[in-house]
């Protein structure tokens, strides 16, 4: 059986005051089944905790689930902290209830991808598997 010896490492978690973790757990599970090493932080993380964790864990990407409506402040804050700490090479993507109108602005700010409701799981898996693996 061919098992990749150098899996991609991805932080998956939830930021802010938002307890809806059904979707993010499904995403974590699907990525695990696709051979990804998920560092799962659980609920209620601050952007500071997310970025410190990403650096300690040396992940290639951060995927954040947000259903609270606070994506316009939380996602840019994560990008800002990554930059401050010299970790801009970490890809940020997000998912959850994110209105169409907000997507272009967030992408322009540097969020690599946003997965809105009804996104097929395979799209997320394909995106993550396509990330730069070289470390």
């Amino acid at each position: 059986m061919a098992v990749a010896t150098t899996p991609i490492r991805v932080l998956i978690g939830k930021v802010g005051l938002d307890g809806h973790d059904r979707g993010v757990k499904l995403v974590a599970r699907a990525l695990r089944d696709a051979g990804v090493e998920i560092i799962y932080t659980g609920l209620h993380q601050t952007p500071e905790q997310i970025v410190a964790t990403a650096i300690q864990e040396d992940v290639q990407a951060i995927g954040l689930s947000i259903h609270s409506g606070a994506h316009n402040s939380l996602l840019p804050r994560v990008l800002e902290l990554l930059k401050e700490r010299g970790a801009e090479d970490v890809t940020l993507f997000g998912g959850g209830i994110i209105p169409d109108d907000d997507v272009p602005r967030l992408k322009a700010a540097g969020v690599q991808m946003l997965f809105q409701p009804a996104t097929p799981m395979q799209d997320i898996v394909t995106f993550v598997k396509g990330l730069q693996v070289e470390r």
Binding site: M1, V3, A4, T5, P7, A28, R29, L31, R32, D33, A34, G35, V36, E37, I38, I39, Y40, T41, G42, Q45, T46, E48, Q49, A52, T53, Q56, E57
Partner: peptide, 27 residues
């Protein structure tokens, strides 16, 4: 790690996350 896919859900640090941004702690 999964013996089937090599993937993993590493969840130990969930319980330790309030130490995440303490510079004296590395997890």
């Amino acid at each position: 790690s999964s013996p089937l896919t090599g993937g993993a859900v590493l969840g130990d640090r969930i319980r330790m996350q309030h130490h995440a941004d303490d510079p004296g702690v590395y997890i």
